[in-house]
Design a protein around this nucleic acid. Structure first.
Lengths: 338, 338
DNA sequence: CTGTTAGCGCATTCAT
DNA sequence: ATGAATGCGCTAACAG
């Protein structure tokens, strides 16, 4: 691989001049510029971002830590971020923590060594070690969906409580009175928020909350499958279920089908996230749509704004709560008795 | 951020010694080692991989270019690769080319500047520019699913033709005679291979191929939805459809449901890929499973083997064709008339 | 308009 | 067992 020095020699100029024609950073005579450009093409010279980064203290690389990039919600979020980042000349290093704080810490360490310009973190666990590591790292950072105790950083999420509320209220308005909820892991704040919204909607409708109607699962299709099966075996099964994400809703619908429970005739199901497949599952899934693409763009913008100010005056901490919107499709309907 | 030099000064030793305690690369007295380690902890020193890379000419970073990381097939493949790479201390820079050769070229350029140690490429388009860029780049590389004319590199894919054949033969064995195929884009070799397998199975069963039964789509749920609708409106609709990927199969099943065509009673559907959601779609999807995780591991191993030999003797070019396996679930059954 | 030079942070060779 | 010195490839004062 050719180096700038070699290019300079062959062009009969200094590396300084070569550098400037590459970066358009100072006036260079047309003649010299052409000559240099010619040699660059001829030698297929490609500047080293590594060397440049060492000099500039900027890698134009962002670390993205998620629990699981195969989960369609994260996959779509990542894609939005990657897209926005590309437009701004940043690359993404993808890290799957699998909800393992140890693995997450190991990754963080590597990212810090690689001198990422910024970090987008959907935290797995929130042990003290993480807060410790993060606060001493002092890398520009934005937290998504999950806050980390003791870490001050921009934070973005959709309004989970509102989402849970709207989903449940929609079911109530359809005429349902026995409404169950399949929640995500109880130790995740977004899960709890969505449940809070669910309870709030129930309360407003004067529907007594039956603890048997709330089951905690794990945000996977399989988990949803099992949770629905359990709910459908209740003495008085629900006529509607709010699933805390689309994966569980889809798995749940599968369980309903196997139990000969028709959706939406016998059971209404509403999901959360609005992943791409929700539009084409059978039946098409009614769901609370999270603005994933907008989130991706906003996250990237916030992070880059913070990166731009590194060392400068402190930007005020931002906390963004995005709205979710109801997408009515075919998995919900008024209850049978109506 | 502390530097090695600062650590050295505070510990009263040379940077050389600090470097050696960090890398365990030569004997250091216990006393000095402890002192250095103490200062490192105290100053929260984190070595710079950037500087190290400049020196070593290795970034421990791999570029991964895919058409679309939200497609569950790629998402799961990426995860397998990312997993395997992590174990071997490599990170992944994720790039979405969106089937746009221009965007792909732009990304490639950046990856080359960042001096990635290797490239995993699921090529979008294969114009001459790409071959040109790639061959002069001389970065260790493995191609996945799509070959690039004029580029010699390791190549990995599943045996698409065999997969298409097995899927179709399975439908034949179930008793179907009118079997349609929803293919991926005609300009993609894997699409063509799967179709070839489909045709082969038809031929073996002495079933005349009806061109109306082969429709080309785009590997998306929406595309599958439209393709199925078209097929179901045929004067003599098929009793079974082989969809070239799960996304299209799932979208197609949605179309069938809306046309009051029951799966599998009225229509058998078999997909391809075996994405995670296939197990929990309604009905559970019968499909040809691609060994995504194994592919991810193999890809990573091949690439790292090649990276290790950089500059050394040439490793023979490898061409790996992995087997797909039939996963029988609930979207297929004998035809009604049986 | 162009060149010289120093230094980014580290690994490593050569001394001692 | 340790240190001094060099250079990886580049950018950016500074000088002319």
């Amino acid at each position: 691989m050719a180096t700038m020095k070699q290019v300079a020699e062959r062009a009969g100029v200094s590396t300084s001049t070569v550098s400037h024609v590459i970066n358009n950073t100072r006036k260079v005579s047309a003649e010299v510029r052409e000559r240099v450009l010619g040699i660059i093409a001829e030698t297929r010279y490609i500047p080293s971002a590594v060397a440049r980064s060492l000099k500039n203290d900027r890698t134009h690389t962002i670390g993205m830590m998620v629990p699981n990039s195969s989960n369609p919600y994260f996959a779509e979020l990542i894609q939005g971020i990657e897209d926005a980042a590309f437009k701004l000349s940043y690359n993404i290093i993808l890290c799957n923590a699998y909800d393992d704080p140890v693995k997450q810490a190991a990754y963080l360490r590597v990212l810090l060594e690689k001198r990422i310009d910024g970090l987008i973190l959907v935290a797995s666990g929130a042990d003290a070690t993480l807060a410790e590591l993060l606060s001493t790292a002092s890398v520009p950072m934005v937290l998504v969906d999950r806050e980390v105790a003791g870490v001050e950083a921009d934070f973005i999420e959709s309004n989970h409580e509102e989402g849970g509320y709207l989903a449940t209220r929609y079911l109530v308005e359809l005429g349902h009175r026995r409404i169950a909820c399949v929640s995500g892991p109880a130790d995740l704040q977004p899960s709890r928020d969505r449940v809070a919204g669910y309870l709030q909607a129930l309360r407003e409708a004067d529907i007594a909350f039956d603890p048997a109607c709330l089951v905690h699962s794990d945000f996977t299709s399989e988990g949803g499958f099992n949770a629905f099966r359990q709910l459908l075996q209740l003495p008085t099964p629900p006529t509607a279920i709010f699933a805390s994400n689309d994966l569980m809703a889809i798995g749940g619908i599968c369980a309903a089908a196997e139990a000969k429970v028709r959706v939406p005739e016998d059971l209404s199901v509403i999901g959360y996230d609005d992943i791409a497949l929700a539009s084409y599952s059978t039946p098409r899934l009614t769901t609370m749509s999270q603005p994933k693409y907008a989130m991706g763009e906003l996250i990237t913008q916030l992070l880059l704004a913070r990166i731009a100010r590194t060392g400068g005056e402190h930007l005020p901490l931002r906390r963004e709560l995005l709205h979710t919107t109801l997408v009515e499709r075919q998995s919900t309907a008024p209850p049978r008795s109506h």
